[in-house]
């Protein structure tokens, strides 16, 4: 099996980072083996990369559906279990819409929130590849490459304008 190395290339600006992504492709490092890390959101389009997969919308829709079901159960189901018939009236529809709406929205937003946690694997306190300069505006490319490519990748990154290229070390954040 080929040895894999992790390199961390730090760029000051987005333009050299975008050129570096192209250069890595030329060298045979595919997008799946490059992780972009930045302190400000950088869209995939800015670096010419494929959009990231996210399940957050699916979590939201799932949560909304579950919330609606819970709302229906509370508004229509529980009065069957604990009947309180007031003034010979049973369950009016308009008030139940309020209950269903609130629970649909509540569960949708909770699942969206949890979706971010699950998709991003939060919380994660294990040591990881990171440098604090990233939150100061630097853009980092975490490159997974075969051992024989390491030297070529390193010199290409330097040639494009990387501030530093080094072996990535997993450290406690």
């Amino acid at each position: 099996m080929t040895e894999k190395n992790l390199l961390l290339a730090i760029f000051e600006d987005i333009d050299p980072a975008a050129r570096a992504v192209d250069k890595l492709r030329e060298l045979g490092v595919t997008d799946e083996h490059v992780t972009v890390i930045s302190g400000t959101p950088i869209t995939e389009a800015m670096l010419g990369r494929k959009p990231q997969w996210s399940n957050v919308t699916r979590f939201a829709l799932g949560g909304a559906f579950v919330g609606l079901c819970v709302g229906i159960f509370l508004a229509y189901g529980t009065p069957q279990l604990y009947p309180i018939v007031v003034n010979a009236r049973w369950i009016g529809v308009p008030p139940t819409i309020v209950v269903m709406f609130e629970l649909t929205m509540l569960l949708m937003l909770i699942s969206t929130f949890l979706g971010v946690f699950l998709d991003s694997r939060f919380p994660n306190y294990t040591p990881t590849e990171y440098v604090p300069e990233i939150s100061d505006g630097r853009i980092a490319l975490l490159i997974e490459c075969a051992g024989e490519l390491e030297r070529a990748v390193e010199s290409a990154m330097h040639a494009i304008g990387a501030e530093s290229v080094k072996r990535a070390q997993a450290e406690a954040l």
Binding site: S54, T57, V116, F117, F122, Y125
Partner: peptide, 17 residues
Amino acid sequence: ALGFRGTEAEWTHLRIA
């Protein structure tokens, strides 16, 4: 901070949420 680093994926999930 939950271990946030600022990867593309983390920003994408955050933006959608």
